[in-house]
Design a binder for these strands. Structure first.
Length: 590
RNA sequence: GGGGGCGUAGAUCAAUUGGUUAGAUCACCAGACUGUCGAUCUGGAAGUUGCGGGUUCGAUUCCCGUCGCCCUCGCCA
């Protein structure tokens, strides 16, 4: 390589006029006018127009004619102002151009399987197969660069605040509960397997026991579960743990970190402290434990209006201990056809509700399939409760409280999306607190941890552990951004007696607890400090901050919905020799 | 594992009620052109309509199966 760059393709301006420069980069476009050829040269930093002119440099012309898209070249030339009327305001370097004097072709390129351009989006399949070409697109690079800046901001913040970055193992013990582990066979111990960590949870607690006081790590977590638009089998967490703290300490530290990211990455100043909402309020007003606060449409309880209703849908729900609740969609009655409303039924039936009842408000009257079942008092009561006006649409669900909340929560999100009620570029953060410590699992017919079994109950609720464990609240907190769970954490149990008690409530026997978590229980006997922490999903955070639509867009080399890497074709079968060394035989597919 | 959507040239898309030689744009190839920046102009090449089967005189179109990708439910302490 004779011509090594003196500048990048994004930095030259009128100030550099007259200087001789060398640029390296990829040929993005070539506009051939015969005796005059324009090449847009691209690198990570931008684009610069290079002009090849036969008049000024005849010898170059043969070489210039060889140039094709995505060739890698080096150009030496003079920075010149563009002639009047040819300045390109869309380009940062649009005031100038390079008048080429020398050209070195560093490498040729086959025709790419898709255009390297931000204006055309190819099929995901192709983008993932040729991800290195996809990443050449400036919009993809921008996201990865922003991700890098966000991670640097976090490292700077936690470093400056005295946190120690400790690496925890990747070959760990498989533990029950929670996400399915990826397993790694042990060559030296046939029949035994390591697990890849679904999170470094236990290690960070042990680091507190070890006296490290403040720990953080930006680390991959691996979960062998099904994928989604916001879920990949390997993802990155900001993992934090602190000693001698309570909820407020963890929340305050985390808010500082999040604010720092917003400031450095988007130039947005967050109002601190962030809003906190109790789990029960989130469920009752938003029908979700991760409420999207960018729009209203809160759930309204109609129980007192319909408590004497003769309408069976309402009376049955209430007499069975359930609820009747609704949401108001302003000025939407005209926009919902009979078919649209029927489609809403499908949506709510997905979460177990029977169906949606709708009321359209007209001039001094209502239109609703339930009209004939409602008394004038009830109709007036609804109107008043919702403050409903002409052309408003009210959607009502009746049934068990949990299902009613969930169904209305789903409706709320669905309608906000459909009607574009969510402003782009807005960020609404909140903490959700006071989670129940346990949930009843219908499937397993027993209590399970809402968060994880190391979560400490609220001190004032501890007496309830023996009487009404389902009512015990946890010292846990989730951070929610725009209706997405960014992360969560808790104050942990640090006493062995409490931990044993929780295990027993969860139906984990002493033997089982000893077998699975014996090392942790033993550790608690050696002076465990009170401690707590949090983990934030970096990929989701970056996704929200960059406006990316999928978690794949913020991961350099992501996997498909079947957890396949289309670029390398992982996972793939291995040789018999490899399997023999591991003492593993693969079952034939049935 | 369940539900839904998509699959046509290298890429992005089109193709009437099932109808004759499957089109357009970009990219590609050849040529023209000294001020373009989505360059323009002339010409050219490019297709197992994902794959397999079925219905039919005839299937890109309808049916069944299958594969891949996407969304979603379950799942993700």
């Amino acid at each position: 390589m004779k011509l090594k760059r003196t500048h990048t393709c994004g930095e030259l301006s009128a100030k550099n006029t007259g200087s001789s420069v060398i640029l390296n980069g990829w040929v993005e476009t070539r506009r051939d006018h015969g005796g005059l050829v324009f090449v847009d040269l691209r690198d990570r930093y931008g684009k610069t127009q290079v002009v090849f002119s036969t008049e000024r440099n005849k010898d170059l012309h043969e070489k210039v004619n060889q140039l094709k898209l995505e060739y890698v070249i080096a150009v030496k030339g003079k920075v010149e102002p563009r002639p009047e009327g040819t300045v390109n305001p869309k380009l940062a370097t649009g005031e100038i151009e390079i008048n080429a004097e020398e050209l070195e072709i560093l490498n040729e390129a086959k025709t790419t399987p898709f255009e390297i351009s931000d204006s055309i989006t190819s099929a995901t399949e192709l983008r993932l197969k040729y991800r290195y070409l996809d990443i050449r697109r400036p919009s993809v690079q921008r996201i990865l660069i922003q991700r890098s800046e966000i991670i640097k901001a976090l490292r700077d913040y936690y470093g400056a605040n005295g946190f120690v970055d400790v690496e925890t193992p990747f070959l760990v013990k498989s533990t029950p509960g929670g996400a399915r582990n990826y397993l790694v066979p042990s060559r030296l111990n046939h029949g035994s397997f390591y697990a890849l960590p679904e999170s470094p949870q236990i290690y960070k607690q042990l680091l507190m026991l070890a006296g490290l006081d403040k720990y953080y790590q930006i680390v991959k977590c691996l979960r062998d579960e099904d994928l989604r638009a916001d879920r990949q089998p390997e993802f990155t967490q900001l993992d934090v743990e602190m000693s001698f703290v309570d909820i407020d300490d963890v929340i305050k530290t985390t808010e500082g970190a999040v604010a720092e990211v917003f400031r450095k990455s988007l130039g947005i100043k967050l109002e601190l402290p962030l809003q906190r909402m109790e789990y029960s309020e989130a469920m009752s007003k938003y029908g979700s434990d991760k409420p999207d606060l960018r729009f209203g449409m809160q759930l309204v309880d109609l129980g007192d209006i319909v408590k004497k209703s003769s309408f069976k849908v309402f009376s049955d729900a209430l007499s069975n201990g359930g609820a009747v609740k609704g949401i108001k969609v302003e000025s939407a009655a005209g926009g919902f056809s009979r078919k649209n409303l029927d489609d809403l039924n499908v949506l709510v039936q997905g979460v177990g509700a029977k169906g949606v009842l709708w009321i359209k408000y007209e001039e001094n009257d209502i239109n609703s399939p339930a009209k004939k079942f409602l008394t004038p008092e009830e109709i007036a009561g609804f109107q008043q409760k919702f403050n409903a006006k002409k052309d408003d649409l009210v959607l009502i669900i009746a049934g068990p409280l949990k299902i009613t909340n969930l169904a209305l929560g789903q409706l709320r999100l669905h309608i906000a999306n459909k009607l574009n009620l969510i402003k782009k570029g807005e960020f609404k953060l909140c903490w959700v607190v006071e989670f129940p410590l346990f949930e009843y699992s219908e499937e397993e017919k027993k209590l399970v941890s809402s968060h994880h079994p190391f979560t400490s109950p609220k001190v004032e609720d501890m007496p309830l552990l023996d009487t009404e464990p389902a009512k015990v609240r946890a010292r846990a907190y989730d951070l929610v951004l725009n209706g997405v769970e960014l992360g969560g954490g808790s104050i942990r149990i640090h006493r062995q007696d409490m931990q044993k008690k929780i295990f027993s409530l969860l139906g984990i026997s002493d033997e089982e607890a000893k077998e699975k978590f014996g090392f942790l229980l033993e550790a608690f006997e050696y002076g465990a400090p009170p401690h707590g922490g949090i983990a934030l999903g970096i990929d989701r955070f970056v996704m929200l901050l960059t406006g990316a639509e999928s978690i794949r867009d913020v991961i350099a080399f992501p996997k498909t919905a079947k957890a396949v890497c289309l670029m390398t074709n992982a996972p793939s079968p291995v040789t018999k020799k490899q399997l023999d060394e591991l003492g593993i035989a693969v079952k034939e597919k049935e």
